[in-house]
Design a protein around this nucleic acid. Structure first.
Length: 319
DNA sequence: AAGACGGGGAA
DNA sequence: TTCCCAGTCTT
């Protein structure tokens, strides 16, 4: 859960997750749908699927016992070099190195490494340094202390060098390059997208479509959604041509902006009323759901916002 | 080596 | 707005 996600955001998810799936066996036996449901809003949903698959792999290939060597850990889906090192050192107290956001920044500054730490060379340098750093005695404590130092003292902006116990060993401080290190990551170009969400109502039910592999939010459910560009001939026509649905367009009831990875999406939410036809598209799952059922389906945050609007704004009673 | 993948919080 | 977060997997 903590991969690329702040501790504050994770805590409530973690509490609910371990309460619902207290053991590896519980998680391995769970439906993917239920795991995604608990993950809703946390983002990077492949982590949830990988975590479940990892649990299944542990049950099936490791007799239900968590592996305790780096090679077997990294064979598990979703566990890379950092997570393997974290598990080994934190949980098993084995001397394994770690490099993540906090220690990356700390190590770069200690070394005075001004080149790109994300390049292949930078990674070699940092992991080598991390190996030299990790002691055989209490490696878990030391690793967590290094991360904590990075998170609380060696911060991205205005680091508290005066309070840093390692200041005398810090090359960046010596060089006066603390503010320039680490080199910031290249920022991807943002693509503006205009999309439409169609809330198609049939009685008290709404039509959901499942996001397919390869699409954003793969595996999650969403209202009918497509690029505005895809519906140039009109929304009613698009629904008929693409899904075989006969419908009557209603009001646009909301507009929201949302950023996801390298996209900034302006989403127009339009209401429509079902007239005839069952939705059909190759390799696409659909489901009619009322508000109660909607609450138990994993949706992207924009979808969840729409669902809440339906509950609160009284839209469900309009035509 | 570069891109894809989410969403929230802080400055 | 912009930056960043206990990274990993796929092109």
């Amino acid at each position: 859960m903590l991969q690329q996600t702040t501790v504050a955001a994770v805590v409530p998810y973690f509490e609910r997750f371990v309460a619902r799936f207290p053991s590896v066996a519980d998680l391995a036996a769970a439906d993917e749908h239920d795991v995604l449901q608990l993950w809703e809003g946390l983002g990077y949903y492949s982590r949830a699927r990988n975590l479940r698959r990892a649990a299944q792999s542990i049950v099936e290939h490791h007799a239900g016992v968590f592996p305790n060597d780096v090679a077997r850990l990294q064979e598990l889906p979703g566990i890379g070099r950092y997570t393997a090192g974290a598990i080994l050192s934190f949980a098993f107290d084995k001397p394994a190195p770690i490099v993540e956001a906090n220690t990356l920044r700390l190590y770069c500054r200690l070394l005075g490494y001004g080149a790109d730490p994300r390049s292949a060379e930078g990674q070699r340098v940092l992991w080598r340094f991390a190996e030299e750093l990790v002691p055989s005695d209490q490696p878990g404590e030391i690793n967590q202390a290094l991360m904590e130092l990075g998170a609380t003292v060696c911060t991205p902006v205005n680091p508290a060098c005066d309070d840093c116990p390692l200041a005398t060993f810090c090359a960046a401080k010596e060089q006066g390059t603390v503010a320039e290190i680490p080199l910031p990551a290249k920022r991807p170009e943002i693509t503006e997208l205009a999309e439409v969400a169609v809330v198609l109502a049939r009685g008290d039910q709404y039509l959901l479509m499942r996001r397919n592999p390869g699409e954003r939010w793969a595996g999650l459910w969403d209202f009918l959604r497509f690029g505005e560009h895809d519906a140039v001939g009109g929304l009613e026509r698009h629904l008929r041509d693409r899904f075989g649905l006969n419908s009557k367009l209603g009001m646009e009831f909301h507009e929201m902006k949302h950023s996801v990875t390298r996209y900034r999406i302006t989403l127009r939410c339009v209401r429509a009323t079902w007239i005839a036809g069952e939705p059909v598209e190759k390799d696409r799952a659909f489901r009619w759901a009322n508000l109660n059922e909607l609450a138990e389906m994993p949706l992207p945050v924009t979808g969840r916002k729409i669902a809440r609007l339906l509950e609160t704004a009284g839209l469900k009673s309009q035509g």
